[in-house]
Design a protein around this nucleic acid. Structure first.
Lengths: 336, 336
DNA sequence: CTGAAAGCGCTAACAT
DNA sequence: ATGTTAGCGCTTTCAG
């Protein structure tokens, strides 16, 4: 590998001059600088990130924490899409992406230790258990962080606006004449709590009193669980006219059960998903779902983190909401 | 950040001893070593990967090249699933994952240069244009590489066995009584060529002469294109009884067109996908598709790369085939 | 068994 | 305008 010293020798200048020329800055003679740069290019010089880091304490490397005990964070389209846009935006700004884990050879390292070990300039945290002490340790450390879909006091985050999402869904349903609205939720997280609150609030605003047994808890991305909840809802005396699902994937578990009952969608019962997976428009009937803007979430997360890294003094901590939009498909019937 | 020097001072020993104690190796007095390790732990010592790398030239970092000019490599479930298992396996073995790009600040770096810049120990290459000179440069360099679904002479690769996949599909179709089998393929890649050859071969082995207009070219993951090809196939005088699609996602584009024609699946026409996306079992009718073992592909790729990195002398270049399995759903009719 | 010292490649103050 | 030099934190001969 050709290094600065090699260039210096070839050019007959000092390594300091080469370093300066390469940075374009400082008061080198423009001609010398130009000459050095040419030679460097010719020799195929590539800087060594580690050596530079050792001096500057800047790695231009961003850590991403995408863990899930089911080890499938990346298998959710929502998250892989976010990762993809984090990657695009970061690279555009000259940062690379390294996954943070807690492995270190055969040993265990906490997330914070791992981030330190790899010298990342900052970390974007998504799809983790935000109650995990290791996650909290990382967030409370001196490493810049941005969380996705979870807010820590005094820290920056990017939040898919679940309150808006559920509000738009419910309002649309009401507009279609529905008043018996059931809601199958995901496991208890802040995202879920926001959605539930928004659900009750919007129902109330529309003069609808929510029956307790219309709200069922399941878990995200587990069609089986949503299927069970669906069965329970269908068994009620006063069956809902529409069921809202925690995500599009779970909704399919619901469809299975609905069809088992011999019911037609949307004629006998309406359903609504969440996420807006790519397949949602290809399915028949086309899904009515709330599309989360995962690309924008990734972009904003990367932008915010880089801002914190590069201008810590000018960057205030904020929670950036990202709006989505309702995709009107064919799974909701206009009644009355 | 606490460093070796700090530990040395606290213990009243030299930094060399600390380093040795930390590595467990060498001929330090076991007690001293133990003592040093305890102090280190107590002080919360975390090694600095960059400093170590500078000396050892080993980063314990693996680069992954997942690019797509449509910038959606990660948005394909097949690839995000592979990435996920590469990540799991690598971390298990003490390696981290960094994405290779060709960005460097505002400048451009070739993939090879970028890999050098980040000092990765090796690179796993997937979902790229394997004809790209930059990709070839990287593969022909001295950096250990493993490619996925593409073979370079003398280099190691992990290959989803597309020959087997198509063979199993065709044999199954024949077994179900089909002889008029159409095949919509993806764009021209080695994967596609293997599939096509396997298609012709297996048909021939079953005494079936493939009609030229039964083979249509579309592109992967573009349901619209497969939809168009489907329309063309349906318009033929001698319509096929079954259509094979390049992937499950594209198949949905086919379904749309088939339903537009007022045909029923599988009664009027049978269809078969490829990939085995998670949704395939949830769709109705449940998809008949060939499930690629993406998890195993990722695991093997990581294992092979680490083997090349750690035992270059003992590792010979090989192409590791990964078998998948046929998932029999409800989209293929038994005829006659 | 332990320590001194060189140096990995680079940057940046400080000379000149 | 250019060069000297001192490290960044770590590993690793080589001496003692």
């Amino acid at each position: 590998m050709v290094k600065i010293k090699d260039i210096a020798e070839r050019c007959g200048v000092s390594i300091a001059s080469v370093s300066k020329a390469l940075h374009g800055t400082s008061d080198l003679n423009p001609n010398t600088a130009e000459y050095i740069r040419n030679v460097a290019r010719e020799m195929g010089y590539i800087p060594n990130a580690s050596a530079r880091l050792l001096k500057t304490n800047r790695s231009y490397n961003i850590g991403v924490l995408f863990v899930d005990d089911t080890s499938s964070g990346l298998e959710h389209e929502y998250f892989s899409s976010i990762l993809n846009s984090i990657k695009d935006e970061s690279e555009k700004q000259g940062y690379d992406i390294t996954f943070i884990s807690h492995h270190f050879g055969k040993d265990h390292l906490s997330f914070f230790e791992h981030a330190k070990y790899r010298n990342v300039d900052g970390v974007i945290i998504a799809s983790v258990d935000f109650k995990d002490p290791e996650v909290i340790e990382l967030i409370e450390s001196d490493i810049p962080t941005v969380t996705i879909d979870y807010v820590f006091d005094g820290k920056s985050s990017v939040i898919s606006d679940n309150i808006q999402g559920v509000r738009e869904i419910v309002n649309y349903l009401v507009q279609c004449g529905h008043r018996k609205i059931a809601f199958i939720t995901g496991e208890d997280t802040s995202v879920t709590r926001n959605r539930i609150t928004s659900f009750y609030k919007t129902c109330e605003a529309n003069g609808i009193t929510v029956r307790d047994n219309y709200v069922k808890r399941a878990r995200y991305h587990l069609p089986k669980e949503s299927g069970i909840a669906t069965r329970e809802l269908l068994a009620l005396d006063d069956r809902p006219t529409v069921i809202m699902y925690p995500d599009d994937y779970s909704l399919l578990g619901g469809i299975t059960e609905i069809e088992k009952e011999g019911l037609l969608i949307p004629d006998d019962i309406s359903i609504v998903g969440y996420d807006g997976i790519k397949l949602s428009r290809l399915l028949r009937p086309e899904l009515t779902t709330f599309v989360q803007n995962s690309t924008e979430i990734g972009v904003q997360a990367a932008k915010k983190l880089i801002e914190i890294i590069e201008q810590p003094k000018l960057s205030f901590s904020e929670s950036i909401p990202i709006l989505g939009h309702l995709q009107k498909g064919k799974t909701v019937k206009e009644i009355k």
